[in-house]
């Protein structure tokens, strides 16, 4: 089975996030970057599928600026066989940020068509934009069936049987023919780390770069980005750890009445 995994590079969780100079983007200046977490689970699912089948190929695909090479290299070190990097401008009208979901999915779709994969895995949602859509849009552009919030994938005859997460702790199995696209939820597997051997091997693996095609007008237009206003007045406790602890105990006794 040839599996394509779409990986997005996003700011690290603990990174200090500031609004970009144009007022419509994230300031990339001092961010540190990583693989979007659900995408790491998508990669893990792909690697385990390949290992279970004892054959196949895992190709990672990313649209993003130059910096994204570090995330593709990490994916190769974890065991992906090849990488495809759709290179976008760092900033401006041809950057990744200037394209809406349909624009980004169209970039991915062009590259995916050329590969004719049996299965495409994406993360269910990006940590930065949180649209939760690119995979589903990509499936529609490619005319593939899809399922979202997937925790587990197995073969069923010529197709697949997947475990889909529903709300409130419910699940559901869904069957579908191949080729298909799945958006992967976190937690279905334990993530592997890149080994020294893997890091070494990655150096000889192929990364193909493609120049991103010209951006089209976004239907969903970003007007302004800003830190949210705090509406709730939280009572903040300050002091040394022991002073804070004493204040909390006080409240637990006399206000919350749980002690």
């Amino acid at each position: 089975m040839k599996i394509l995994v779409a990986i997005k590079q996003v700011p690290e969780r603990d990174a200090q996030i500031r609004v970009g100079a144009d007022g419509r983007s994230i300031d990339e200046g001092d961010a540190a970057w990583t693989i979007n977490e659900p995408d790491a689970y998508a990669l893990e699912e792909a690697l385990q599928l390949k290992e279970r089948e004892g054959a196949g190929e895992v190709v990672v695909l990313c649209a993003g600026p130059e910096r994204a090479t570090s995330s593709l290299r990490e994916a190769l070190a974890k065991g992906a066989d090849r990488a495809i990097h759709i290179v976008t401008d760092d900033e401006g009208t041809e950057s990744l940020a200037a394209r809406d979901t349909l624009g980004v999915a169209a970039l991915l779709a062009d590259a995916a068509k050329a590969e004719s994969p049996d299965l495409i895995l994406t993360g269910l949602q990006s940590d930065d934009l949180g649209a939760g859509q690119t995979g589903v849009v990509l499936a529609e552009l490619l005319g593939m069936p899809h399922a979202t919030l997937i925790m587990h994938v197995e073969r069923a005859g010529a197709g697949l049987k997947v475990k889909r997460e529903l709300e409130d702790g419910w699940f559901q199995h869904v069957e579908m023919p191949l080729p298909a696209l799945l958006t992967i939820q976190s937690g279905g597997n334990r993530l592997r780390y890149a080994t020294l051997m893997g890091i070494k091997k990655a150096k000889s693996k192929e990364t193909r770069t493609i120049d991103a095609s010209a951006a089209t007008t976004a239907v969903a237009e970003i007007v302004k980005v800003y830190p949210p206003e705090r509406v709730k007045r939280t009572e903040m406790l300050t002091g040394s750890a022991d002073e804070i602890a004493a204040k909390i105990v006080e409240k637990l006794k006399f206000e919350v009445k749980v002690l």
Binding site: V19, I26, G130, I222, K224, V225, P227
Partner: peptide
């Protein structure tokens, strides 16, 4: 955006 660290206005 960023799991609630930023807001973005869309049209």
């Amino acid at each position: 955006w960023m799991q609630g660290k930023l807001n973005a206005d869309y049209r």
